[in-house]
Simulated assay, not measured.
Amino acid sequence: MFSYSGSTKDTIEVAKKAKEKGARIISITRFVKSPLTTHSDVTLLCGANEGPLQGGSLSAKIAQLYLLDVLYVEYFKRTYQESIDNKESTARNMNLFHHYSANLYLDKMMPTPFPNSLSLVSLKFNII
């Protein structure tokens, strides 16, 4: 769970629900003593100091993204074959998704009031 302050109500609520369902929670936050860390199994401290007018500073986001990248690389190395299989499966499914969604969009093109332009009907669906 990412939260600079560790006090974002929605993030804390998600952490509580996930914990109730048996998930292990890793929190990435700036403050060790925050409401989020009370629900976490592991707390990683990350982020630059922010002033009151700097909410969502770029340096804090970059630090969090870097930490996420390090965690991903380590997980990938430890579960190499499973990660390769998952990556290939995701690529295959995304290719199918793009193929079918392109056909759906082409089938659903409708003229707009503007000459020389087309509007696409947006369709939302889940891949299972």
Score class of each variant (00 low, 15 high):
S83E: 06
F76R: 14
A15N: 02
N93E: 13
T112S: 15
R30Q: 07
I12N: 09
G47D: 06
L71G: 11
I62E: 10
F2Q: 00
T90A: 12
K87L: 13
N49R: 13
R78K: 15
K77V: 05
H98E: 13
A60C: 15
I12A: 00
S40G: 08
Q54L: 09
I128R: 11
G6H: 00
A23N: 07
T29I: 04
I128V: 07
A102D: 14
S122W: 00
T37Q: 06
S83V: 08
R24S: 10
L71A: 11
E82S: 12
L68F: 11
F125Y: 15
T112K: 06
D107W: 03
K19A: 04
S122K: 15
I62P: 06
G51D: 12
T79Q: 14
K17D: 05
R30K: 15
T43Q: 04
T8I: 03
S122H: 11
T29S: 06
S59A: 14
T38M: 05
N49W: 04
I62T: 15
A63D: 13
L53C: 06
K17S: 07
V14C: 02
S117L: 10
S101V: 05
T43A: 13
A63N: 11
S101I: 08
F76P: 03
A60I: 06
A23W: 11
V14S: 04
F97G: 04
G6R: 01
N95M: 10
I127W: 12
